[in-house]
Deep mutational scan, measured.
Amino acid sequence: MGFKLLSKLLVYLTASIMAIASPLAFSVDSSGEYPTVSEIPVGEVRLYQIADGVWSHIATQSFDGAVYPSNGLIVRDGDELLLIDTAWGAKNTAALLAEIEKQIGLPVTRAVSTHFHDDRVGGVDVLRAAGVATYASPSTRRLAEVEGNEIPTHSLEGLSSSGDAVRFGPVELFYPGAAHSTDNLIVYVPSASVLYGGCAIYELSRTSAGNVADADLAEWPTSIERIQQHYPEAQFVIPGHGLPGGLDLLKHTTNVVKAHTNRSVVE
């Protein structure tokens, strides 16, 4: 069995187990497998329904001669939608809004960016022009300005110390501490036991640490421990890039980060 097929099978099995364990909360999309990078042309966006009122959005972007996937989250909030992270750029984010209108038909009224990198804030200006209120932590807003990236308009308070959590509509926002970046936030959907790890969490097929220019490698494993301790009931975990899975993604990420750190020390 090929690795790609095995990865998709694991996603399907995880979703099936969740649907059985929580039949009222989960209505997993039966329309197909989780979209992969090879299936999404740059400039297009796919939506994948995880649970009743919960979707991931998947886009792709060219970077350094390669094409990478990027995940975000959409959560229903009454007759409105909360968006977590842009679709990595203005063109993708405009396509995301169009796809949401086509498939869901509810307005996106608020959006949260989970850290300051372009795959999370690139497209904020498109959201703002569409009347979406954009939010991020003060740290993310400051770092985005320093980096020359787009800056969300509103500040999220109460997320300055490791372990801080605040309720934001249908989700809980959690600051686990520094990891992929010093400002990275985690998003949890309690009604569906869905954990969105953003770039602080890796997919299972990833074996290298990737972009760690703004990471705190020493603190990252401790931050992941905080996530595990705060959300032990999480059933569906979405990484910032690639295929979702279960809580095993947290341990896998820790292993990859520690291996990278150990290699760096040896070198």
Rank of each mutant, 00 (worst) to 15 (best):
Leu249Gln: 00
Thr60Met: 09
Ser162Cys: 10
Gly242Gln: 02
Asp77Asn: 05
Glu147Gly: 11
Gly78Ala: 10
Leu156Gly: 02
Ala111Glu: 15
Ala165Cys: 11
Val45Gly: 03
Leu143Glu: 07
Ala234Cys: 05
Gly169Trp: 03
Gly2Arg: 06
Thr207Ile: 13
Glu145Ala: 15
Ala25Asp: 05
Arg141Leu: 14
Phe236Pro: 04
Tyr231Asp: 00
Ala111Met: 14
Phe116Arg: 05
Pro152Thr: 06
Asp214Gly: 10
Ala51Pro: 01
Val45Leu: 12
Ala136Lys: 03
Ser205Pro: 14
Gly65Asn: 07
Glu233Asn: 09
Ser191Phe: 08
Ala95Pro: 03
Leu81Pro: 02
Asn71His: 01
Thr254Arg: 10
Trp55Gly: 00
Leu249Asn: 04
Ala87Ser: 12
Tyr231Lys: 00
Glu147Cys: 14
Gly169Asn: 04
Val37Met: 11
Thr36Gly: 08
Leu9Pro: 07
Thr93Ile: 02
Leu73Pro: 04
Glu157Ala: 12
Ala133Arg: 13
Ala209Pro: 12
His260Phe: 06
Val189Glu: 06
Thr140Phe: 04
Thr261Arg: 09
Ala178Gly: 09
Leu243Val: 10
Asp183Lys: 00
Leu6His: 09
Asn71Asp: 03
Leu217Trp: 12
Thr254Gln: 08
Pro232Asp: 13
Ala136Glu: 03
Asn71Val: 03
Ala25Asn: 05
Gly123Gln: 03
Ala59Glu: 14
Gly210Arg: 11
Ser181Ile: 00
Ala25Thr: 08
Ala130Cys: 11
Phe168Asn: 00
Leu10Trp: 12
Ala215Met: 10
Val45Asn: 06
Glu39Pro: 14
His230Ile: 15
Ile17Val: 05
Leu47Asp: 02
Gln103His: 15
Gly89Arg: 03
Ala215His: 14
Pro170Val: 08
Gly78Pro: 04
Pro221Gly: 13
Thr153Ala: 09
Ser16Trp: 07
Gly89Lys: 04
Asp164Asn: 15
Thr60Pro: 05
Val187Tyr: 01
Pro176Thr: 01
Gly32Pro: 05
Cys199Trp: 02
Ala133Gly: 09
Asp216Ile: 12
Ser16Pro: 09
Thr86Leu: 02
Leu24Pro: 12
Gly131Lys: 13
Val265Thr: 10
Leu156Arg: 02
Gly65His: 06
Met18Phe: 05
Arg128Tyr: 07
Gly210Tyr: 07
Asp119Trp: 00
Leu47Pro: 04
Ala179Cys: 03
Ala15Glu: 07
Pro239Gly: 04
Ser161Glu: 15
Ser205Lys: 11
Gln103Trp: 09
Leu81Phe: 01
Thr134Ala: 05
Asn71Glu: 00
Gly78Thr: 14
Asn211Gly: 11
Thr207Lys: 08
Gly72Ser: 02
Thr36Val: 12
Gly105Tyr: 15
Gly122Pro: 04
Val166Ser: 07
Glu80Gly: 14
Ala165Asp: 09
Tyr12Leu: 14
Gly53Phe: 12
Ser161Arg: 13
Ser205Gly: 12
Leu127Lys: 02
Val45Asp: 03
Leu73Arg: 01
Val187Arg: 01
Phe116Pro: 01
His117Lys: 02
Asp52Tyr: 05
Thr93Leu: 00
Thr261Cys: 09
Val266Met: 07
Thr261Tyr: 05
Gly169Glu: 04
Arg141Lys: 14
Ala94Lys: 11
His230Ala: 14
Pro152Val: 04
Glu172Gly: 03
Thr140Tyr: 04
Gly32Val: 06
Ile238Leu: 07
Lys258Ala: 12
Thr14Arg: 08
Gly246Gln: 06
His260Pro: 09
Val112Pro: 04
Val256Ser: 05
Arg226Thr: 15
Val124Trp: 04
Lys8Pro: 01
Asp125Gly: 12
Ala129Cys: 04
Val108Ala: 11
Val11Thr: 06
Ala179Val: 04
Cys199Thr: 02
Ile100Phe: 03
Thr134Arg: 02
Ala21Cys: 15
Tyr12Pro: 04
Val166Phe: 07
Asp29Pro: 07
Asn211Ala: 12
Asp216Pro: 05
Ala144Thr: 10
Ser191Ile: 06
Thr222Ala: 14
Pro239Leu: 01
His154Cys: 05
Leu81Arg: 02
Arg226Met: 08
Asn262Cys: 07
Gly65Ala: 10
Pro23Lys: 07
Lys251Cys: 10
Val265Arg: 09
Gly72Cys: 01
Leu156Lys: 03
Leu195Ile: 09
Gly163Arg: 09
Ser70Val: 05
Ala66Ile: 14
Glu150Met: 13
Ala136Val: 03
Thr109Arg: 14
Asp216Glu: 12
Ala19Asp: 15
Ile58Trp: 10
Leu143Ala: 09
Gln229Gly: 10
Pro69Cys: 06
Val45Ser: 10
Val266Pro: 08
Arg120Ala: 14
Val257Arg: 01
Val75His: 04
Phe26Glu: 08
Glu33Met: 07
Val166His: 05
Asn184Met: 01
Leu24Met: 15
Ala215Leu: 10
Asp216Gly: 10
Ala136Pro: 03
Ser7Gln: 11
Leu5Lys: 08
Phe3Asp: 05
Pro69Ser: 12
Glu80Met: 09
Tyr188Val: 05
Asp64Asn: 07
Ser16Gly: 07
Ser56Trp: 08
Glu145His: 15
Leu6Ile: 06
Ser264Ala: 14
Ile74Cys: 04
Ser264Pro: 11
Ile238Ser: 01
Ser70Thr: 15
Asp52Gln: 06
Ser62Thr: 08
Trp220Val: 02
His230Asp: 12
Leu217Glu: 07
Ser31Arg: 11
Asn262Trp: 06
Gly245Asn: 05
Pro35Lys: 06
